[in-house]
Simulated assay, not measured.
Amino acid sequence: MSCRAGSWMFAAAAVIVCLLDAAVFAEAKNFEDVRCKCICPPYRNISGNIYNINVTQKDCNCLHVVDPMPVPGHDVEAYCLLCECKYEERSSNTIKVTIIIYLSVVGALLLYMLFLLLVDPLIRKHDPYTQPLHNEEDSEEMRPRADAGSARGNTVLERVEGAQQRWKKQDNYLDHSPARTIK
């Protein structure tokens, strides 16, 4: 099911990207994607100002952007020398595609998290057959062993098995000790 959900999200993202690419080719440059920004500092008794206008790159200068001109005709050149004009260009479609891909990935991760939250309790469900086995092992461990003498521990496999049993006993003791229980 998670493979199908992941494939579905990937297909949806691919369709959205294709639609946005088609929109890019269908329309010309968006008027918000290019601008000329002139930052003019205070001049004499005139406060500073920022001017934004959509013009071509060759017309990106104070004379074409600053309108209305705040200074009289003879001060225009001095005022324009103080202004800093920059031509700025951005691709809003690239920004949109990036945001859509980002949101798709976050959405896919959220769906995966929800899937795990729903499936994890089913996977970790307590198996009713494992409890009787543990009880039988505990009762066997309580009985004294007749073969615990020299026959035990002759082979490497038997030694490893004995160490494993001691480790299990110690682990069970730690799990059921009062200091480890959380209320």
Rank of each mutant, 00 (worst) to 15 (best):
L117C: 10
L110F: 14
R159Y: 08
K96H: 09
V97N: 00
G107I: 07
H134R: 14
V106I: 14
P42G: 05
Q164C: 11
E84C: 05
N54I: 11
V71I: 00
L103N: 06
Y112D: 08
R143N: 04
E84G: 08
K125F: 07
N93D: 07
L157H: 11
N135V: 12
C60R: 00
V160I: 14
V71C: 01
N54E: 12
K86Y: 09
K96C: 08
M69Q: 14
F115T: 00
Y102P: 00
P121R: 02
H64N: 15
P41K: 03
I53H: 05
E89V: 04
V71D: 02
C60G: 02
R166V: 10
K58S: 10
Q165E: 12
N154I: 15
V119R: 11
V160W: 13
S150M: 09
I95P: 00
N93K: 05
P70V: 00
Y102F: 15
R159D: 06
D175S: 10
L111I: 04
R90F: 05
S104A: 15
Y51T: 03
L109S: 10
C85K: 01
V66T: 00
L81N: 14
D59Y: 07
L118K: 09
N61Q: 01
A146F: 10
H134N: 10
R44P: 07
A151N: 09
I95L: 12
T130C: 06
T56K: 07
L122D: 00
F115V: 02
G162R: 13
E141H: 11
Y51R: 03
T130L: 14
Q170N: 09
G73P: 13
L157P: 00
Y79E: 04
Q170R: 12
H74C: 03
N61T: 04
L111M: 14
G162W: 08
N45C: 04
D171A: 12
R166Y: 08
L103T: 11
R143D: 02
T94Y: 07
P42C: 00
R166G: 05
C60F: 02
D138Y: 08
Q165M: 12
E137I: 15
V71L: 03
C80I: 03
L114N: 03
I99G: 00
G107V: 04
I46N: 03
R90H: 13
E141I: 11
D127H: 05
Q131D: 10
L118Y: 11
I101G: 02
N172T: 07
R143Y: 01
I53C: 05
Y87K: 00
V55R: 13
I95H: 07
R124T: 10
I99L: 14
V71Q: 00
I53R: 15
S150H: 09
P144Y: 04
P72S: 09
V65P: 00
P70N: 09
P128L: 04
D175E: 08
Y51V: 01
L82I: 01
D67N: 15
C83P: 05
H126K: 13
G48C: 00
I123E: 06
I123Q: 03
